[in-house]
């Protein structure tokens, strides 16, 4: 008698996110299209929520009048200066804390106490110290970037496998060579992950600082647009921040791909 045959049903598959190229584009088109439609039909009050097309128009006006470059330039130069200063100092202290027990014992309580302070709270103090101009804004950004960098750097040092360091010692590498050839490259993934965090912190702080007292800068532009109820310009500024953030993250991604090619 022939036995009945039955195929074993397939039960695997799924739970494996795969890229879908068209979906992101479709989502953007749909959201902006709906928004434009809602504005055109008058479902959205134009005074409080301008249409995408009006926002593009506001951006166009900024380009025509030449203020776009000034605002972006002012914000970018503050971010760049503050970020570089805060990152350099943070890396120096963080690596020292990653290498020397004494530096860690001395630094950790200070870092732990100062890290949770929202750095924008210190801006009034920095204005008293450095004046209302650039230095107080740069100092706020630098300070805000410094602590996360310290933490990223010393935890990244901890994550370097000790067996690699013992290997270096077993070949008689001098301590400086162990730091530069093993510890620092091994800590790079953690340090670069920290850069992503500090870049977004710098963006937040530059806007906040510019809202407190600046003539140019995206934060100042958004604030003055709000004061004049120019919501199209206000949202154009917000869109600029989104583009700025995306650009920074693209640059960091390129750096990561170049530096961490070995991963």
């Amino acid at each position: 008698m022939a036995e009945r045959t039955a195929p074993v049903p397939f039960r695997g598959g799924g739970f494996q996110p795969r890229p879908r190229r068209l979906v992101p584009v479709a989502v953007f088109v749909a959201v902006i299209g709906l928004w434009q439609l809602a504005s055109a039909r008058g479902w959205l009050p134009a005074l409080f929520m301008p249409s995408p097309w009006q926002i593009v128009g506001a951006l166009g006006d900024m380009i025509d009048s030449g203020t776009l470059g000034k605002h972006i330039g002012a914000s970018l130069s503050r971010i760049a200066l503050g970020w570089v200063l805060g990152t350099s100092a943070g890396l120096a202290i963080g690596l020292a804390m990653g290498i020397f027990s004494a530096a860690r014992a001395a630094g950790l309580p200070v870092v732990s106490a100062l890290f949770p302070i929202p750095k924008i709270a210190l801006l009034p103090l920095f204005i008293l110290w450095f004046g209302i101009g650039e230095p107080s804004k740069v100092a706020t950004i630098g300070f805000g970037v410094f602590f996360p960098t310290v933490i990223a750097a010393y935890t990244a040092c901890d994550s370097v496998p000790r067996n690699l360091i013992r290997m270096g010692q077993s070949f008689g590498l001098p301590a400086a060579a162990i730091v530069w050839k093993i510890l620092v490259p091994g800590a790079m993934p953690g340090i670069l992950a920290g850069f992503r965090i500090t870049a977004s912190i710098a963006l937040i702080l530059v806007v906040a600082a510019e809202m407190i007292g600046a003539q140019y800068g995206i934060g100042a532009f958004i604030l003055s647009a709000g004061n004049l109820m120019q919501t199209d310009q206000l949202l154009a500024g917000v869109a600029l921040l989104s583009l700025l953030g995306l650009a920074v993250s693209a640059v960091l991604g390129a750096i990561e791909r170049a530096v961490l090619r070995w991963r």
Partner: peptide, 30 residues
């Protein structure tokens, strides 16, 4: 002999960011 006592490790202890040749050269660079 540049390094009289020299280890071969169970987990290899290679630097993942260095090429094969550079990993070998690490022992000579200093």
């Amino acid at each position: 002999s540049l390094n009289p006592f020299t280890y071969v490790f169970q987990d290899f202890a290679l630097l993942p960011w260095r090429t094969v040749a550079a990993n070998v050269a690490l022992a000579l660079e200093h």
